[in-house]
Design a protein around this nucleic acid. Structure first.
Lengths: 372, 372
DNA sequence: ACCGAAGAAGCAAACGCTTACCGCAATCGC
DNA sequence: GCGATTGCGGTAAGCGTTTGCTTCTTCGGT
């Protein structure tokens, strides 16, 4: 029987050829693994000369510290979970992009999952994220399932929701100010002379679409404008949904002169539905979106929309998570993170038909820039 | 000084409240941690009765095995890296979605990174993925940087490229059959009577766009059609690029009657550029895309395009990775994975103007379904 | 009744790292 | 000049698992 030497400081006969461990570096530099570790982590107590030797060795053997092992001892994985509802909805890739940039800039990696509105999926996703020991999770789906969330809250697990998830204390919430942006949208339309303004909502079983719809109704009420029930139609936050909803709007007798949509994909769907008719946007009907996705400015005509900056959404999410993760974060106590919204006027909105000499409608209205 | 007891089998005074380890379960079930581990991994040598007790304990304390620790000992992280060039290009979210579904179905998690065509970013991304000990990486950016790839290949690190990355042996390659799909596209146009067919390419410093352009030129040559240099314009694989390129095409004297584009976003940009002129698609000019993203069928008119199924792309990528990772995978030896492409005829293509009575052009051509 | 084989559970090493603690040499104070 | 401090590096414990080896029990064969 071969006497196996288990000198703990010897380089391992590696499993995968080429995977270099801290011991290889230590051997090469002629120091202990502790010193290597300290050098890598730039701990000032190590002699500069030695440190140089270590770094040289690191370079020569091509050492990369194993994050898993680090995570195991430090208890922090530097992994963040990001849950979105549907990654194929163009809003989310933009969000993901921003989130990722910010996260990596802070030394975190991101595990993304999309739920497709399926709560079983969400649950399994959450479980997997926890097994991976993520340091925190941002739930950016605009409709939350409340099951295991409670347990997590009890565990003081850093969690960020958008629009207040379940009414639980002690979780971070990105409070999107739908009211402001949507009011701006409605007022913009009203200022142009519109009175018959329809609204295509998102799927109403979700929270956020409901909130947006409420905001619209309130803004209309403020202006003293009635909204007939048939001008309130439900979409799905997808282009298909926008098309269908707009078609329904077009079929009925009392045509609105303007349509606000719960998100941009819906608005884009609406534009498509209108293109298929003899009607023109914005001359015959104005359309306003919500989100301001990249695509919006490339529509024909470029879409007037309410901007919800995914940059600030991502930034707030990261900040909130860090506040929950890092013990001495300046804003550790903050629980609500406001996200502002405001209208971006492009060319899909104009005076309602018949309100003015036709030629004034040729060039779409271009009010002054909204306040930033 | 308090004598610290270090009985290894006692539950830890946990770092994060609520993080439950295997020892908690062991204690609760009154067995050793080894038994818990074996029960969890369904190793048949454990007594059914004991196993039941263990599972009960697991349930009671809410135990989730720590993947990091598992990875550390097994040497496999069950993490897959997915590198895309630009996650905001709609093609990629679709790919990501498929990839993720497949990966999770096989028990893998996915780390996504988008390079934005920045090779420094790619490099840092790769490094981070390696530190995370990913089991393999799929590089789905359609233009590769060849730097550290070689080292990885030497390490026998499972790597999948699309379109043959650097001409290195021993890496898995998803061979997209551009030629076939593009030939079908060209032939479709030629069959309709087009002879003046322009091509908007992607950024030519990347490999895949070059291959697509080559495929187009070859298909044209096969048909004996000359392509004047001014009908070959370079885009950027984005909508903006498509708009600019199409504008350039429109400015020049010799207007093509059809335009093929290197990807769908380019084609969509081209459609937009054309909408801004009095020309009509498809009556005055036909447009063909490439990719068949979801959006394509919702264009006005619905876009005729060459489909490159991201489902099969994702499936092949996963298969290839697993073949590289799992020692006894059936296809461990396979290195090339063919991906077929074929045309999907919708309504952005029709007879060229003037070739036929006008009314025949009212309804766009609808040839029979292509072979699957 | 005794020995050996088989089955089941436990012990402990190992995965790659961080870090508390300890030992050693050089320096300081008086 | 000698004990006390200080500065640096090494030793080893431990993070949460898996797993080879050992131990203990049970049972069958003779």
């Amino acid at each position: 029987m071969a006497p196996v030497s288990h000198a703990r400081n010897q380089p391992s006969d590696r499993k995968r050829p080429g995977s270099v461990s801290i011991r290889d570096v230590a051997q090469r530099a002629g120091v202990s693994i502790a010193t290597v570790s300290r050098a890598v982590n730039r701990i000032p107590t190590v002699d500069p000369e030695l440190a140089r030797r270590v770094w040289k060795a690191i370079d020569e053997v091509g050492y990369l510290p194993n994050t898993q092992a680090r995570a195991l001892v430090s208890g922090r994985s530097h992994l963040l979970g990001l849950i979105v509802s549907e990654i194929t909805n163009p809003f989310f890739p933009e969000l993901v992009q921003e989130f990722e940039n910010l996260a990596t800039a802070q030394g975190y990696e991101v595990l993304i999952g999309s739920t497709n509105y399926d709560s079983a999926r969400t649950e399994s996703l959450m479980r997997r994220l926890l097994q991976r020991n993520v340091d925190g999770v941002a739930v950016m789906t605009f409709g939350v399932e409340e099951d295991l969330v409670k347990k997590l809250v009890e565990r003081e697990f850093p969690l960020v929701f958008v629009d207040a998830g379940p009414g639980l204390p002690n979780i971070h919430v990105l409070k999107v100010d739908y009211a402001e942006g949507i009011r701006q949208g409605v007022q913009h339309l009203a200022a142009l002379g519109h009175r018959k303004i329809a609204f295509i909502s998102g799927p109403l079983e979700q929270r956020s679409p409901r909130v947006r719809r409420e905001a619209f109704l309130r803004a209309m009420t403020e202006l003293g404008i009635q909204v007939p029930a048939e001008h309130l139609v439900e979409g799905t936050h997808t282009m298909e949904g926008g098309i269908t909803a707009m078609e329904r709007l077009l079929e009925q007798g009392d045509l609105p002169t303007a349509v606000m949509c719960s998100n941009d994909m819906t608005a884009i769907g609406a534009l498509h539905a209108i293109y298929r008719t003899p009607l023109k946007v914005p001359q015959d009907i104005s359309v306003v979106g919500f989100d301001d996705i990249h695509l919006a400015q490339f529509m024909l005509p470029p879409l007037t929309t309410v901007q919800m900056s995914c940059k600030s959404l991502a930034a707030a999410a990261i900040e909130a998570l860090r506040a929950g993760i890092e013990p001495d974060h300046p804003k550790a106590k903050q629980k609500e993170w406001p996200i502002s919204t405001h209208i971006v006027v492009r060319q899909s909105t104009a005076f309602p038909p018949g309100s003015l000499p036709a030629r004034m409608n040729r060039e779409p209205a271009r009010p002054t820039k909204p306040r930033a």
